[in-house]
């Protein structure tokens, strides 16, 4: 079973994403901000990360840059999932090492399509 870390400061979004990803046979971990996510990754590196952008303490893009600098941090496939829906943000995410990008609102079809494109399903 592949693992997915869901990083979002909204408990509701984490719950919705968890339900969709559990349906796609992922084992789920959760983090409410980038700092907690980074600590989780240091303990157990997940196969996939669904990542919000705007969060307190440490935001998504700072987390991603820190992750990609870690030992083994190049491995997880990272899918941004954010309300930031302009080209500038998308380009910044890709150059920081994101593999895919979801613009909120999302549904199960979008998550499934994006995860399958980058070989997670």
């Amino acid at each position: 079973m592949k693992s997915c870390l869901i990083v979002d400061d909204s408990k509701v979004i984490r719950m919705v994403a968890r339900r969709i990803l559990e349906g796609l046979q992922f084992e789920i971990m959760e983090a409410a901000d980038g700092k907690i996510a980074l600590e989780t990754c240091l303990k157990t590196m997940p196969d996939a990360i669904l990542l919000d952008w705007n969060m307190p303490v440490m935001n998504g893009i700072d987390f991603l840059r820190a992750l990609r600098g870690l030992d083994g941090g190049a491995a997880p496939r990272v899918v941004f999932c954010t309300t930031e829906n302009d080209l500038a943000h998308i380009q910044e995410a890709i150059s920081a090492g994101a593999n895919e990008y979801i613009m909120k609102p999302f549904d199960s079809d979008i998550i499934e399509a994006k995860f399958s494109q980058i070989g997670l399903i």
């Binding site: 829906n85 998308i90 890709i94 994101a98 895919e100 990008y101 979801i102 979008i110 399509a113 994006k114």
Partner: peptide
Amino acid sequence: TQFEVQRGLPIQFLV
């Protein structure tokens, strides 16, 4: 729409 470009289109192609 934003929904349509997210169903199956790789993000690099969108950009």
